[in-house]
Design a binder for these strands. Structure first.
Length: 320
DNA sequence: GTCCGGCCTG
DNA sequence: CAGGCTGGAC
């Protein structure tokens, strides 16, 4: 049974795997790590141009460690959750200084790096180093739970039962386990989706316990309810950061950076002397959002996160 | 409206 | 364990 599922899945993978630039051994372990961090809560299609531009400028940990924070935040563009960019740079500094610019090869060491949690540490172990480890993300939880248990995976963190299941069905062969992780995740992303799974074109339809049971409770309680975006602090924070990126603070910002990531450029030699950090005057900050209570709340939280600096005159800029 | 390949903090 | 944190594609 398990062998049948594996065969069907791998055949599907061979025909349908998306050709992402960090797949199929075409990048370094560091490149895989960057792709995983960028992909946290962000769709792959949006990640690709950012990843390509990023790797061009900062191909390894040492180069990223040497960038200014303002450059890094600017290059992050509109990928969202910009604290990830900060953590990525902290991570780069640790790898450059403590690991001689080579990503460590154990789960525990990876997990200890800034911004790297269980999912990313496992993913790097599997996808970058070819290790045999069960990768657990929301897609894999959903697919395995449906196929093998016949029930929906519910929100929150992975349960012990889900972890045990993932470990139990992971192919014994290391190389097969990597393909397994990738293909189960891919199936969850494009076929076995949360609310409207495409069971009619699923390679595992014949052996899926969930489908056989009539898909009980399809799409129920799959994750925490998503916050609305309109009007939230997240939207306001995004607006503020976007305005600061547009200033070109950090010397490498390009107005197009937010749009298509092609704006990441190395600091031009001519600019090197212009440390002159442009800041956004207070009145222009206030023009960004009508509710000034919420605005100030967001400015304070961005400051606490280390994503902006507040100057004595109340103007804002990216951290230098 | 749906769907996102989580991490960190308290 | 709950809650905060983006933004775009379809």
């Amino acid at each position: 049974m398990k062998e049948l599922i594996e065969n069907e899945l791998f055949a599907w993978w061979n025909r349908n795997a998306r050709d992402l630039p960090w797949r199929f051994g075409r990048t370094t372990p560091w490149g895989v790590l960057i792709s995983e961090v960028m992909s946290q809560q962000t769709q792959m299609s949006r990640v690709v141009p950012y990843w390509l531009a990023w790797m061009e400028v900062w191909p390894d940990a040492a180069s990223l460690a040497g960038a200014s924070t303002a450059e890094v935040i600017t290059a992050w563009g509109r990928l969202g959750y910009p604290r990830r960019a900060l953590r990525l740079q902290e991570c780069a500094r640790v790898v450059a200084q403590q690991y001689d610019n080579e990503l460590p090869r154990t789960y525990d060491e990876l997990l200890a790096l800034p911004g790297i949690g269980d999912y990313t540490a496992s993913a790097v172990m599997s996808f970058a180093f070819g290790g045999r480890i069960a990768v657990i993300d929301t897609n894999i939880r959903r697919v395995l739970s449906r196929v093998f248990l016949g029930v929906e995976s519910h929100g929150g963190s992975a349960t012990r039962q889900e972890r045990e299941l993932a470990a139990r069905v992971l192919p014994k062969d290391a190389k097969a386990s990597v393909t397994w992780n990738q293909s189960v995740m891919e199936l969850g992303a494009v076929v076995c989706t949360a609310k409207n799974p495409l069971c009619e074109q699923c390679p595992l339809a014949d052996s899926c316990t969930f489908l056989a049971a009539g898909r009980p409770g399809l799409g129920e309680q799959r994750t925490r309810p998503r916050q609305r975006f309109q009007g939230t602090n997240r939207q306001v924070r995004g607006m503020i950061l976007n305005a600061l990126r547009g200033l070109g603070a950090g010397g490498s910002a390009d107005e197009a950076a937010g749009k298509r990531a092609k704006g990441i450029t190395k600091k031009a030699p001519a600019d090197a002397g212009h440390a002159a950090a442009t800041s956004l005057p207070r009145d222009q900050v206030e023009a960004l959002w009508g509710d000034h209570v919420q605005l100030d709340l967001c400015i304070a939280s961005l400051d606490e996160d280390g994503l902006i600096e507040i100057l004595p005159d109340g103007s804002l800029r990216l951290p230098q």
